[in-house]
Amino acid sequence: MSREIVLDTETTGFDPKTGDRLIEVGCIELMDLLPTGRTYHTLVHPERLIPPDSTRVHGITDEKVKDAPKFAAIVADLVAFIGDAPIIAHNAQFDRNFIDAEFRLCGHPVLEADRWIDSLQLAQKKFPGMPNSLDALCKRFKVSLADRTFHGALIDARLLAEVYLELRGGKERRLDLSAARVTAAVGPVIAAAVGARPRPLSPRSTEAERAAHLEFLKANLKDHSLWEGYGLDMEKAPAA
């Protein structure tokens, strides 16, 4: 089974190089592209004030994070949850920059670059020249945004998990997974249904009816090969 982690973050701004910090992280576990129900979520104390412009986007205030743990206190739990799985993020470079910066600040090795999968790049290949923000993709794939008032790391990760499924095959993929589960459960029954019948059904016609039918075929059909394939040997059929 293929395990992946969908990750989203909220931050104090756009660039960790200018002092911006991570203030929220949310993760969703996927198994074969479907959420398992396991999540990881926490607010993070940024050790600086949150600008009003950022709060207008995600609704997170200084008051909300005043008692939140600092990143160094949660890094072990975050790494344990992610494990060795690939990480899916929308515009992944943004999230990766902040995660890497926080890892370095607390002296933790950064996650390998090749583990990051950018769903924005997947969308741009699938829909070139079209709006491919997370909101735009939710609308395109009819993923409901009704529960979201502000951007939030966990809710956006949940939305992205649905979008990612669609980008990787959508309903067709979901049906494939369902079929696989059904086959695993009732495979022998299906195999028996489509394979060779272990015991032929008893004929329902009488010998006289079968003889009359063969005489009709011999008298009216020039090409007997089709019927021979169904077990009717015309050479042995009674003469008309």
Rank of each mutant, 00 (worst) to 15 (best):
D147I: 12
S119P: 02
L111Q: 06
E29K: 02
R21A: 01
G19E: 03
P35D: 01
C27K: 00
S119Y: 01
D20C: 03
M31I: 04
I5A: 00
R3T: 04
A76N: 13
Q124T: 12
I50C: 03
A219L: 07
P203H: 09
L34M: 11
G231N: 05
S54N: 02
K64E: 10
L43F: 03
L201Q: 10
W116C: 09
D20P: 01
H224T: 08
A196H: 12
T61H: 04
T18R: 14
Q124F: 12
E10T: 03
E112V: 06
T39S: 08
E209G: 02
T18L: 15
A146F: 13
H90V: 03
P69C: 14
F216L: 14
H151K: 07
E235D: 06
N132W: 04
R181F: 14
R56F: 14
R148Q: 09
L122Y: 07
D95F: 03
G195P: 01
F127R: 11
L120D: 05
V6N: 00
D95E: 09
K142D: 11
A208S: 11
R174F: 06
T61S: 11
T149F: 14
A92W: 00
A73I: 03
T36N: 04
R48T: 15
G13F: 04
R104H: 05
T61N: 09
E162K: 06
H224Y: 12
A161Y: 01
Y164L: 05
G37F: 02
P86D: 12
P188S: 14
L78D: 02
E172I: 15
K70Q: 15
E166G: 03
L34I: 13
N97S: 15
N97L: 11
G170T: 02
A240M: 11
W227T: 13
D233F: 03
Q124K: 12
L145G: 12
A101Q: 01
A191R: 09
T18H: 15
W116G: 03
V194S: 15
L30V: 04
A237K: 07
A237Y: 06
P46E: 01
I88C: 09
E162N: 08
E166R: 08
T42Y: 00
D135N: 15
H45A: 06
G229N: 15
E24M: 00
L78T: 02
I88F: 02
R38T: 10
Y230L: 11
G59A: 05
A237S: 13
R173A: 07
N97T: 15
I60P: 07
E102P: 09
T149P: 09
A153Q: 05
I82R: 01
F71Y: 07
F150D: 05
K236Y: 12
L137C: 02
R56Q: 10
P51E: 08
D95G: 06
F14R: 08
G107A: 10
V25F: 00
A180P: 08
A89I: 04
G231D: 09
L214E: 09
L165V: 13
S119C: 10
K70R: 07
T42D: 01
A192T: 10
A179W: 09
S205Y: 09
P198F: 08
A80R: 11
R199H: 14
I117S: 06
F71L: 05
A193W: 07
V163Y: 00
A157S: 06
